[in-house]
Design a protein around this nucleic acid. Structure first.
Lengths: 225, 225
DNA sequence: CCATCTCTGTGAAAAAAATCACAAAAAATT
DNA sequence: AATTTTTTGTGATTTTTTTCACAGAGATGG
């Protein structure tokens, strides 16, 4: 057991957590590492290694208890810590996210939305309180919001990030068409480029065809063990 | 120069391409590797290495010509290859994507949308032709669609993936709350979990606080060179 | 036009991550 | 109760990726 966890393992463990939630809902009681691996497109070795970073939890010759593994990941990654979130930018994407149930009643509850267009704010019907963007820093600070989603147009993204960070946000998911940065580097930022994902897919396909790609990650690891 | 490109480099090169597009629009003529690195949150060394996989293109002591580097990436990653795309699932997220201009007039043009709810299809106003889900395999095949976005509820996701793959799709971006798999492993799949990104952020923040994270990736690499 | 300065490109080195291989422990079977 | 089978957990190994360090090519400036 190792108390220092590599970032790729943390990310996979989060995926495993989601899988355990689903398996538990489906009434599955036990899983084996190759099952988890197949579901996540990762080898069983990696699965076991990842889990072992959190300490021993499996049953020799009898796999993992789904509920126990779920709680184990939950506890060790600190997922029991609830945090408030907000969405900056209420265009189509921001609205879509506001409609996801998980964003409203999950552990990272969206408790505020922001948009620069007051007319837009007045038109939207939602249970989440909405505010004009100029109040962003103030509201984020007052409400103790730690996580933010940026869904504004590219030109506004960095300025919005600055305001969120000024309000004390610690983590940002950015959907704008530009990588946003934090001055201090202390804020975690995950940039997601929805259209760019198509570009990446296309590039990987091209290179796969011409055999100039070193390795293709992804599901379906094939036979092993 | 090396003709075999690691996958992480391909992904970073796609980000560089996006950056070059933006710089070109802003009238910037030249960039240096540390500039690119700062924008993308990557060290200048890695930037240079990534670019060098595509052959020499920079000017010694004078950085990279923005337009030239953009075209270079474009050509070498085969981004000049146009592909048709579709969106399966026209809930809020699917509709939001259908409204993005890039998805309508970019290189990976969305030319079909699918939803299982015919009433929903009739209500939507869009320039993209929409079809009921049961025709998915047929339409994908007939239209020569190679890329697909899955934005359906979790229970339907794998079945939708199967239909898309049966129609000949080669790459999938999946937003459903479950990792979808391709039977053969020949189809590239990128699973994106929007809510899960909040979970990852929270976990990384927790571990960063307790100093049990090995390394935090992300923007702001700090001083170097 | 010579000296200096700058920045790329890339082999070499280091670091990180994934995979392997197997001991050990528990379950299943005989 | 002993034997076989199964599957975890983890050091050791291999592979992959990143970082380093510097040669070399060209720009800059006196």
């Amino acid at each position: 057991m190792n108390r220092i966890i590599p970032e790729p393992s943390v990310i996979r463990l989060c995926l495993m957590y989601r899988l355990m939630e689903r398996l538990e809902n489906n009434g599955v009681k036990t899983v084996f590492s190759p099952d988890i691996g197949e579901n996540l497109g990762i080898t069983a070795h990696t699965i076991r290694k990842d889990i072992s970073f959190l300490g021993e939890i499996g049953n020799t010759a009898a796999g993992y208890d789904v509920a126990k593994l779920k709680d184990h990941i939950h506890g060790n990654l600190g997922l029991d810590k609830k945090r408030f979130a907000c969405i900056a930018g209420l265009g189509k994407l921001g609205q879509a996210l506001l409609n996801y149930r998980q964003f409203l009643d999950g552990d990272y509850r969206v408790i505020a939305g922001f948009d620069s267009d007051i007319n837009n704010l007045e038109m939207l019907r939602t249970s989440v309180p909405l505010y004009p963007s100029y109040r962003m820093t103030e509201i984020v600070k007052d409400m103790g919001i730690e996580l933010a989603v940026i869904a504004v147009p590219v030109q506004a993204a960095q300025e919005v990030a600055n305001r969120l960070i000024a309000g004390g946000v610690k983590g940002i998911i950015n959907f704008a068409q530009v990588n946003v940065k934090s001055k201090s580097g202390q804020v975690l930022i995950r940039n997601i480029d929805l259209y760019g994902e198509l570009r990446i897919l296309s590039a990987l396909l091209n290179l796969k065809e011409t055999a100039s790609l070193k390795k293709v990650n992804g599901p379906d690891p094939g036979k092993e063990d």
